[in-house]
Design a protein around this nucleic acid. Sequence first.
RNA 1: GGCCCCAUCGUCUAGUGGCCUAGGACACCACCCUCUCAAGGUGGAGACACGGGUUCGAAUCCCGUUGGGGCUGCCA
Length: 461
Amino acid sequence: MVAPRLRFAPSPTGFLHVGGARSALYNWLTARRTGGAFVLRIEDTDDERNREEWVDDLADALRWLGLDWDEYYRQSSRGDLYAAAARQLEESGHTYWCECTREAIDARAKERGGPPGYDGFCRDRDLGPGDGRVVRFRTPREGATVVPDVVRGNPSFENSTIEDFVLVRSNGKAMFILANAVDDGDMRMTHVVRGEEHLPNTPKYLLLWDALGYGEHPVFAHLPLLVNEKRQKLSKRRDPVAVEQYREEGYLPDVMVNFLALIGWGPGDGREKLTREELIAEFRLEDVGSSPGFFDVAKLRSFNGDAIRALSAADFVAAALPFLERAPWSDRLDRTTFERIAPLVQERVAVLSEVVPMVDFLFLDEPEIEQASWDKTMKGDAAGVLDGVLAAYESVTWEPDALKDALTAVGEAAGLKLAKAQAPVRVAVTGRTVGPPLFESLEVLGRDRVLARLRAARSRL
RNA sequence: GGCCCCAUCGUCUAGUGGCCUAGGACACCACCCUCUCAAGGUGGAGACACGGGUUCGAAUCCCGUUGGGGCUGCCA
């Protein structure tokens, strides 16, 4: 048996779509398990989608996910191959030239009152090449084409329902369907794993495949679509779909991979947290489900938080640092200071970008006071608490337990529980009502800066 | 309109004729823990779209209905 060959064939659109990432992942997992090849093929036959930086972004995102490829191709540099295939098809009588404009096609359809689409007007006119003419495939009028698909069963399409589709544009360039089939044939692909939106195209692909004599059909796996909460295909206009976006928010690549694998597939025994190695060993295209999946960001967040908490302290610091280095105050960032508070932050964030607002008070000269937090806490007994704490913290031993005891005592004197008494102190020092444990935060910040902030807050009351 | 796909808790799913008074996870609710927020613990609510068959027996098989989705470009 020949080694499997699989490919991810994205069109550059400026970012890696999560649906595309899942297709890439399923291909990659299958290739890695079977010792086959994973091919990255950029489908850039449309000039408008052929921007270098877009291609780079795609590759970067794939690398970030850890999906490495064994071979790399660009359709834009394989035009000769498509032209040769088109000639071969013309010589074997599988194609014909057509001069119908879109307008003419639509007008005839409207006149007929029938369904929209091409009617085969030029099929028997025996036209030659010429200005504005395209090459169409002469679709068989009889028979049916079956798509061998491990997730859909084997859907069958009546050839009579497939119109004579365009293979070569009037500018001489190959259409997606031609380039796609020719490349898969030329590259000897054994599996085609892609989104369900390609299913209706597949009979055309197979008709071409046979006409070109490529032999045995590849095995298909048309993956269920990823949908939004309205059950529609994830769209870049409405939904957060860019893998790069999740990367910037601080999702871990392994979590992304794990989560993507789980939309439409599972190991069958209820386990949900799987390592990359487990995924490679256990993933099977045959076990992929067939109903659409919702990309549930809340669940992704939960998984990510779990994974962050599972990191070693050193790994967490390393993972968080790039996010801190992008903060506006990064010039004052001090790694040692961050390391002191890091373990307390680690268990409180679900995504890495959340680290920044949780520790900024350590690096800013003045804490960034959130107005809502201020309004909520700086009233009632706040002034008395601040006065009391100010006095106590002048001389208290500067370590968490002592700081806590002192504040507790101040609160009790005013008849306040610690939960209540700590609030104005927290806001005065960190600017927010939520954050890492207060007394450890105070310890790291240091007595002088804490006292200064408490005084500043007190004077603003 | 035509062609095709899909249908278990809100979501991702387990379930492949009896183990199902349908299991897990995320989300949600309550309580516990607690210096805030998380995390953690305990408990709770929550689904087989509908109608016909087949069968001793159906979430599981078949048909239909309804609902949802995709495709229908000289985009990919």
